[in-house]
Structures are given as structure tokens and as C-alpha cells.
Amino acid sequence: MNNEMNITFKSISANEAFARISVAAFVSSLDPTLEEINEIKTVVSEAVTNAIIHGYEENPHQTIAITCTLSEDNLTVIIEDFGLGINNIDLAKQPLYTSKPELERSGMGFTIMENFMDKVEIHSVPDEGTKVTMVKEFKKSKTLCN
């Protein structure tokens, strides 16, 4: 099935749950496993939390945008903020690297995204924002009908 959805919402932490539940609901037509749903919810939560904490430094008046595209059994999720951007993407992707240890971050967000998704691409421009594009291929129908 081919399908698309867009949501934009304010950069408040209460929207983290809204964002991951919305994306999980969007992929339900693919008949995902519980494990796949958990992976999707987790990576959306990671990227939205990064936008709020790092992109906008917890300023609640900014905007986060999510675009999801379904094409056959592939989901593409794009999560975008228009905040501070990332100076060194290679460093940011290192497991356990965080620029905000004082906020009790563990530096695992990008590592989790890369583990749970088939493809993760980060596009970021300092002072313009960050766009994280993630692709996941869902396993073909779990039950054969013939």
C-alpha cells in the first residue's frame, strides 16, 4: 500500500508520546509485529526528544515536523526541526557521545535509531536545523493465505 501523512506540533515534551503513537498507528496497515511497533515508537521518541532538547534547547514555542511515507512494505519517517543544528555529525553518532551530560543524557539516541531501523540519514546545518530520515522494511505478511 502507498500512503503518506504529515504532522507538525510544538516542541513540548508532552508531544513525545503523541508523536510515537501517531506513527505507530500510521504503520498499523502493514500488520507489524509487537517488536516492530516498539522499534518504531522508540526511534520516533529518540528523534523528537533530540529536537526538543538539542535542536531547541527546550524552548517550547518551536515546531517539529514528521512526514511518514509508506511504499509497499517500506516505511520512511522524516523528523525535522529548525533549531541549532549539529556541528559534527560523525561525533554525534558515536555511541555514548552526548553534548549534554549535565541533563543526564546517555548518548545512545543515534545508536538506538541505527540499531532499530534499516537506514538512518542525518542532514543538519548549524543554525538552520536537523532532518533525520529513517527507513524500515517490514517483514512480508506474517501469515500466508494460500
Partner: peptide, 13 residues
């Protein structure tokens, strides 16, 4: 039922 890296951070803290 659900946890992300924020949970790791608060537990480690």
C-alpha cells in the same frame, strides 16, 4: 512497557 534513552539517563544518574 516502553522506555527510550531518557530512561537510561535517569537510571544511570
Amino acid at each position: 512497557h516502553f522506555m527510550d534513552s531518557s530512561g537510561l539517563g535517569v537510571i544511570l544518574g
